[in-house]
Amino acid sequence: MAKDDGQGKRHSGISIGSVVGAMAIGDHNTVTNQQGGTPADPVQAELLEALRELRTDLARVVAGERTRALDGAAADAEAEIASAGAASPGRLARLRQALADAEGLTGVLASAAAVGRTVAALLGG
């Protein structure tokens, strides 16, 4: 039912109690899903940023089996950090192995070296 706002304008009485997921109402709105938000652990946040940089860099190199495997491992770790707030030790171990398998990239791409250093810090060496 429409209500008068006291200034001669009528507004409908729509009330939204809660929203799960993402939504936008009205013209020219956008929705940004920040489900996981920023990781509480600063090292995980650093890894998340380094993974994003690595994946951007990987998109610029000629794709091969090893680069695709590294990109997949990076994407999986990125998704886990974004959703759960941290990458599990198993995920970090797989990422470390993918970095080792693509060893030529770690010397060429600074982002790969940054991911490697951060993973080593999280796994203890």
Rank of each mutant, 00 (worst) to 15 (best):
21 G>R: 14
6 G>R: 05
101 D>T: 10
123 L>D: 05
58 L>H: 00
54 L>N: 00
99 L>H: 04
8 G>E: 02
70 L>Y: 01
66 R>W: 01
122 L>D: 01
68 R>V: 11
11 H>G: 07
19 V>E: 14
123 L>S: 11
108 V>D: 11
14 I>W: 13
46 E>N: 03
20 V>F: 13
23 M>S: 15
68 R>F: 09
24 A>E: 15
17 G>E: 10
68 R>T: 05
77 A>K: 00
108 V>M: 15
83 S>E: 09
45 A>L: 15
67 T>S: 13
91 R>I: 03
111 S>R: 08
73 A>S: 14
73 A>V: 02
49 E>A: 15
58 L>M: 06
121 A>G: 08
110 A>K: 06
35 Q>W: 00
24 A>L: 12
31 V>S: 14
19 V>I: 15
5 D>K: 07
79 A>P: 00
109 L>I: 04
97 Q>T: 09
32 T>W: 09
52 R>S: 14
103 E>R: 12
92 L>A: 00
90 G>S: 08
84 A>L: 12
32 T>V: 10
116 G>Q: 04
9 K>L: 10
75 A>D: 12
4 D>Y: 13
27 D>R: 12
39 P>L: 12
8 G>A: 06
24 A>H: 07
83 S>W: 07
106 T>Y: 08
70 L>N: 00
4 D>N: 07
50 A>S: 14
69 A>P: 00
115 V>Q: 03
100 A>V: 13
1 M>T: 09
104 G>K: 02
85 G>F: 10
85 G>M: 01
71 D>A: 09
16 I>A: 12
27 D>Q: 09
81 I>S: 08
121 A>F: 08
49 E>W: 15
61 V>K: 03
107 G>S: 11
32 T>Y: 14
99 L>V: 07
48 L>T: 00
41 D>I: 14
41 D>K: 04
37 G>N: 08
81 I>Q: 09
103 E>C: 12
70 L>I: 01
104 G>C: 03
82 A>D: 06
37 G>V: 03
27 D>E: 13
113 A>H: 06
40 A>Q: 08
17 G>Y: 13
30 T>P: 02
81 I>L: 08
39 P>D: 01
73 A>I: 01
3 K>T: 15
101 D>Q: 09
34 Q>G: 12
49 E>Q: 10
11 H>M: 04
74 A>S: 08
72 G>D: 14
60 R>Y: 04
121 A>E: 08
102 A>Y: 00
102 A>D: 02
89 P>D: 04
66 R>I: 02
30 T>W: 12
48 L>R: 05
39 P>N: 06
50 A>D: 03
49 E>G: 05
84 A>R: 13
64 G>Q: 05
84 A>G: 04
84 A>W: 07
34 Q>S: 12
91 R>V: 06
125 G>A: 07
76 D>A: 12
44 Q>W: 02
21 G>K: 05
115 V>Y: 05
112 A>T: 02
93 A>I: 10
78 E>H: 10
57 D>I: 06
12 S>F: 14
15 S>I: 09
100 A>P: 01
44 Q>R: 09
71 D>Y: 02
25 I>T: 10
78 E>V: 01
29 N>M: 07
33 N>C: 04
121 A>T: 05
67 T>M: 09
72 G>V: 07
32 T>Q: 14
59 A>H: 03
47 L>K: 09
89 P>V: 07
30 T>I: 10
1 M>E: 11
